[in-house]
């Protein structure tokens, strides 16, 4: 997948390493295997168990029902009948894409602003990075109570001061509220990566471009953006990994609601195990979540990689 585009040594560099490659293969494996085994045990082994649970009916708080084998019934129900799950897939997709897009665009904008020399740049950068340090639970608490609350929230005060209709954001726009909350947190992350990309860009290339007459938008479009492509890919890759697992914000701010409007796949799995005690269904949903995450990550990245490669060519 994407791995090929980012930081894997290409053929040239591996031929260099070839010279120092030690004949003592055990040393290589000795260094590598502990981590690989550790990761396998802590992530893959439980997943195999999840697969095992997913073909059983197991209601945690009803041991008298036993744990009978049900085959693919849990999967069948989730895919064909469970409208909540189907909706959650869509919601996850929407929320993830929006969060990545919004934070990427804002992050890019901020990075460009910060990539200039001006008085107090260090302080400004510190302020802009700050949301990245805030734990998701605090983030959601602050937004929910101070900004989005329909009675005492600052947005409410702003709206009523402007004589606009009162809006109950978390009820009327739960998805967008989550997007706003999470984007606030992830923008600095994107900004940090892109800023470093900008600062790593050689001034010579820019000078050359300016002499060629590229300025403003043209310079940005034809010089900056292509050079940033790999950084943008990285933003999207890392962002997707974390945003697909978004949980704290939803748990605190909307609890998946109202109704099931902001219920994402991870949140639905959480509810199924935590609130409904349905281990079998939760396991099946967990398996589907893994499949879903793999598809979304692979698909999205492939698309982006192609776009950027073409743009660069």
């Amino acid at each position: 997948m994407s791995a090929s585009t980012i930081s894997v040594p290409d053929a040239a560099s591996s031929s260099v390493t070839g010279r120092i490659r030690s004949p003592r293969i055990p040393a290589r494996l000795l260094l590598l295997l502990p981590a690989i085994i550790y990761l396998a045990v802590l992530t893959q082994a439980p997943f195999i168990l999840t697969l095992w649970y997913s073909v059983h009916k197991w209601i945690l708080d009803q041991p008298d029902l036993g744990r009978p084998w049900v085959g693919i019934e849990n999967f069948k129900y989730a895919i064909t009948q469970d409208t909540v799950f189907q909706q959650a897939v869509l919601t996850t997709l929407i929320i993830t894409v929006l969060i990545i897009a919004v934070s990427l665009l804002l992050g890019l904008g901020f990075a460009l602003l910060l990539n200039r020399k001006f008085f107090g740049r260090g302080v400004v950068r510190a302020l802009m990075i700050a949301p990245f340090f805030v734990m998701p639970t605090v983030n959601a608490v602050v937004w929910k109570n101070f900004f989005l609350d329909p009675i005492i929230g600052l947005f409410d005060w702003l709206l009523t001061s402007l004589h606009l209709a009162r809006v109950d954001f978390l009820t009327s726009y739960p998805k967008l509220s989550i997007v706003a909350i999470a984007s606030w947190q992830w923008t600095p992350f994107m900004m940090l990566i892109l800023l470093a990309g900008l600062q790593g860009m050689s001034e010579e290339v820019r000078e050359a471009a300016r002499i060629d007459g590229a300025a403003g938008w043209a310079e940005f479009r034809h010089i900056t953006l292509p050079l940033l492509a790999r950084y943008i890919e990285l933003c999207i890759l890392l962002g997707t990994i974390y945003v697909l697992n978004l949980f704290g914000e939803i748990r605190v701010a909307t609890q998946g609601g109202p109704g099931t409007e902001s219920t994402t796949v991870p949140y639905y799995v959480y509810q199924t195990i935590h609130d409904y005690n349905d281990v079998g269904s939760a396991a099946a949903l967990g398996v589907l979540a893994v499949v879903f995450a793999s598809l979304i990550a692979a698909g999205l990245l492939r698309l982006l990689v192609r776009t950027f490669r073409e743009g660069q060519a």
């Binding site: 009820t171 009327s172 739960p174 998946g256 609601g257 109202p258 109704g259 099931t260 409007e261």
Partner: peptide, 11 residues
Amino acid sequence: QNLSGVLSGGT
């Protein structure tokens, strides 16, 4: 959970 969706106008 379903019913609270009615309150928000989602359903």
